[in-house]
Design a protein around this nucleic acid. Structure first.
Length: 271
DNA sequence: GCCGTCACCTGTGGGC
DNA sequence: TGCCCACAGGTGACGG
């Protein structure tokens, strides 16, 4: 579900609500969400305050007085900040209770999301953040040559390469289709055939698409929400993903699978 | 190190 | 109505 714009929207919503609150208890109902030993995770977080929330790619980083816990929403993860006891359902798997009578509920229908605690010195030096590539929103000076050098080493499709979070992070299935459409590049083209100028174009369009999607609080196709009953509005700007007709040449769009992912593109406009 | 496949889960919608 | 199957916005483990 959530790609970079949706995660950034969640970060902003939570930053307006939970900073400086002390976590006094954690209720872990589905242990597989937590990658650590549960007691280790809880002992390192309980009695600490959330000082800030950062984002790298699709990861949320909840910085505490000391250390941080990192959260990935994967397909369906959502956070709700509500009064303690005001919500309950079988899809809520982790609950952080604060000292003000409110709680942060982590809900995840498919249970794919993950959380892990890190000491301060290992947050960016260990997995998972160690392997995360360039964040196109956080990095104001983008090294196009570096990205090009990594892309042309790959022999898979350009779409597959752009979904690889270790090169450019933050793109998911929806925005990759949009970026490639704006860049006029067929998603099936092999990475090692992509020219330097096309990489520049892809990166610039990535920044453009993601920035505008953040402005509109993400894309809601099915289930995404940044908090209870708050939905993204970028879907009105989608050109190809889930669409049937090309908005430029008006020919029917193609839909097929690349690496098992639904892929929408125009065979006339994307070459 | 790269690549393809599968697994992780549940809900939804279409076909029969 | 009920059953079965494919599919859904992500990522990591594993074997070749």
């Amino acid at each position: 579900m959530p790609e970079l714009p949706e995660v950034e929207t969640v970060r902003r919503v939570l930053s307006n609500n939970i900073l400086n609150l002390k976590i006094i208890d954690i209720d872990v109902r589905y242990p597989n969400i937590i990658e650590d030993d549960i007691d280790y995770f809880k002992n390192n977080i309980i009695n600490k305050r959330i000082k800030s929330i950062d984002r790298l790619g699709k990861f949320l980083i909840f910085n505490l007085d000391d250390g941080a816990f990192i959260s990935h929403l994967r397909m369906e993860g959502k956070y709700y900040y509500l009064e303690k006891g005001s919500i309950d359902n079988k899809h809520i798997h982790v609950v952080f209770h604060f000292d003000n009578g409110y709680s942060l509920y982590y809900q995840d229908v498919r249970k794919f999301g993950r959380m892990i605690y890190k000491n301060s010195d290992e947050i960016y030096e260990t997995k998972p953040l160690k392997d995360v590539g360039i964040d196109p929103i956080l990095n104001k000076k983008i090294d196009y040559r570096n990205i090009y050098d990594k892309i042309v080493l790959r022999s898979v499709s350009i779409k597959t390469t752009l979904l690889d979070q270790s090169i450019i992070c933050g793109l998911g299935n929806i925005y990759v289709d949009e970026v490639l459409f704006l860049s006029k590049i067929n998603p099936h083209r092999l990475s090692h055939d992509i020219k330097y100028d096309e990489v520049v174009n892809i990166v610039d369009n990535t920044v453009k698409v993601l920035s505008k999607a953040i402005e509109y609080k993400g894309t809601t196709i099915k289930s995404y929400t940044s908090s209870l009953n708050v939905y993204g509005e970028y879907q009105q700007f989608l050109n190809v993903h889930t669409k049937t007709i090309c908005p430029v040449c008006h020919s029917p769009l193609l839909k097929d699978k690349i690496n098992g992912r639904s892929t929408y593109y125009c065979k006339n406009c994307e070459v």
